[in-house]
Computed example of a mutant assay.
Amino acid sequence: MSGATPAIKTIRGETIPALGLGTFELTGPAGEAAIRTAIDLGYRQIDTAIRYGNEVEVGRAIRASGLARGEFFVTTKIWFNDLSPDTVHRRVDESLDRLGLDQVDLLLVHWPTKDVPLDETLAAYAEEKQRGRTRLIGVSNFPVALLDEALEVHKADLFCNQVEYHPFLSQEKLLARMRRAGMLLNAYQPIARGKVFDNDLLKALGRKYGKSAGQVTLRWLIQQDGVGAIPRSSKPENMRANLDIFDFELSPEDMAAIHGLASGRRYSSFAWEPAWDD
């Protein structure tokens, strides 16, 4: 059957590929080659971060593609210990230099921190947007309480919140809040570190639709309103398979069944993480 969900998400008039490439651990010559392969296969949303240590590789791969800058949606992130305003501005300078770009498409707060007032960080991000060094700003790993503070108290104009999201982790409360704000939820670890391939329901649905459990999972994510995904892979065959999800559509009953798998299981755990939503 022909899928109705387009390969592009439109959020407040801005467009972004529904599926992007997560580049965590894609470093050095091998990492650059993997990113270049992804671009050759059709990836146009590229997600990086200062913490990943591969902005140089991302920039080189983009330039080596020969494609126009406007073909790409490039995201980078600033780590939680660099969120004071002066440091934010320095880090953006450094990121743009490493990427070889005049502007990124999206600048994210990588993780929230209690060490710098949120309003100061958001003001610095807004200034970077005003200066044209990023088109859009957003956050990552923000639960509802922090998102409420950013949106309601500080009136931040946020495009995106990037969080862990997969069939085993409900983000129902966060999604509801983000939809009210007209924001994109971009899902990292969307296939739950490969655990979806062991799930009986997802495997059965894969057989039904002629797809893998991973493809069913990615389809479930991008078929939701306001949700995108950034699976990370270094293998061409997996990159190609991840993109092959736009020629089918899950039924409402199958979407609901996958939602029913949620158990609150997270595959990321850090000492600095905020208090997550129940």
Rank of each mutant, 00 (worst) to 15 (best):
A38G: 03
F142W: 10
D278W: 03
V153K: 00
S263I: 11
L19M: 13
V88C: 05
L218G: 09
Q162R: 10
N161I: 15
S233D: 01
I245N: 06
K235P: 06
L250F: 12
S269K: 07
E120F: 12
R179P: 04
I137H: 00
N141H: 02
I230F: 08
D225S: 05
M178L: 12
E237L: 04
R240S: 15
P143Q: 06
D277G: 04
D200W: 10
G100K: 08
G226Y: 11
D105T: 10
F270W: 15
E127Y: 09
D86G: 00
V109G: 04
G28Y: 14
V139G: 08
L205F: 00
L107W: 00
V139Q: 01
L169D: 01
T23K: 09
L101W: 01
E273D: 13
L107E: 09
P236C: 15
I62K: 00
G70Q: 15
T48L: 07
F80L: 15
G228H: 12
A176Q: 03
L218N: 03
L83A: 05
D102G: 12
E164V: 07
S269L: 11
D148N: 13
I258A: 11
G210C: 02
E164C: 11
D102K: 13
D278Y: 02
I46Q: 06
E14M: 06
G42Y: 03
I11G: 11
